[in-house]
Design a protein around this nucleic acid. Structure first.
Lengths: 196, 196
DNA sequence: CGGGGAATCTTGTCAGTGACAAGTTTGGAG
DNA sequence: CTCCAAACTTGTCACTGACAAGATTCCCCG
């Protein structure tokens, strides 16, 4: 298996990337709990100890996966904000990321699974946070109503709403949902108000 | 260890309950991923195979834990609704349950960890759902605005908001938070609106 | 009271897993 | 061409979950 580059060789060539992709696939299917480093190695056609060389241990691999996820989320949010300028669409993009990059999203919010103090991960997470809060000030009367505390609270409420919907959707708690819940998410997110 | 009843004997006496309590404690400390049946057995002072008799397998134990959680959540929500009659306080009670019964809550929304079709669990989950939606119709103009679909959507938004805040809090994504986030939760939940 | 079935718990075992140690192969800089 | 470092392998160990078979205890029914 694995038709990478020019046939099988002692050096895989792109093992790190292959392992991350295989991990994302496996997690999306059976959840993070069922993930096995040895199974990933088998899928990639390498020995059982090969993954350790790139990631150290299991938490190391999930750290890389989470960091990748935070990077992608930041990019998706920036893109949504740049192209629509709508706070609502920022939330929709958040939900879309959760549903399309399910494995990454699930790992990202489970810090007990990875090395939460990894520098690269921390940086990526902060970039996500900035992108997430970039649109808060744009809410009508967002900055005027009650100062910075008010902005922060509204942002937290928006984040909670989008995050909660995504989480419930991923857990299968919402029956009778369409394949891609973008439209439902939009409707739900509209229930956020800035003035309390 | 384990000063149950009248000293140690071949029959533990209340092993099932002891295992569930130990599991909740272990999960609250290190997350569901680190849970070990053999470790639970050691804590309870029984052999490594004793848990299997009561729960079948690991998923069986987590099924029981999740069912217990859904029962408790339903009770807490009913209690909150009965004593306050406030939709807002229903959400606060939801968040309080998540933070005070952390282990149960975390497992409940991770169906890949348990037998999601277990009859007792399904029943308990439905009781939770009923208690959760019991207050939706009470929202101002909740029933009049747009019929059943509107009520369902508002309920989903409220659930998402409370669930998202609780989840983010549990994941440690919200720095600078008080020990018990009741008051913050109340403030955040006030950002829900029924009219879109 | 007392026999016996059933519930509870034990010991023993097996394959799979993550982590680590030590050795092998390969690429590439000088 | 040499040699070093990176990439990967084989080998091993403790631990885990699951299962099988046996031991102990409870309690119901006569």
């Amino acid at each position: 298996m694995a038709s990478y580059a020019d046939g099988m060789s002692y050096h895989h060539g792109d093992l790190r990337r292959a392992l991350l992709a295989a991990a994302a696939e496996a997690i999306a299917e059976d959840g993070p709990a069922a993930l096995s480093l040895r199974d990933l190695a088998r899928r990639a056609g390498v020995s059982h100890a090969a993954p350790a060389h790139h990631f150290g241990d299991k938490k190391g691999l999930l750290t890389a996966l989470a960091a990748e996820g935070f990077e992608e989320l930041a990019a998706a949010l920036r893109q949504a904000w740049a192209s629509t300028g709508s706070f609502l669409e920022l939330g929709v993009a958040y939900v879309r990321f959760a549903t399309t990059r399910r494995a990454h999203f699930e790992v990202m919010w489970r810090p007990d699974l990875y090395h939460a103090d990894d520098p690269a991960l921390v940086a990526a997470r902060e970039r996500s946070g900035e992108a997430l809060y970039s649109g808060v000030a744009d809410l009508p009367d967002g900055g005027a109503g009650g100062g910075r505390g008010q902005v922060r609270e509204t942002g937290l409420a928006a984040w909670s709403l989008a995050h909660g919907f995504a989480t419930l959707w991923l857990s299968g708690s919402l029956p009778d949902m369409p394949e891609l819940p973008d439209e439902v998410a939009r409707a739900v997110l509209r229930h956020l108000t800035h003035d309390v």
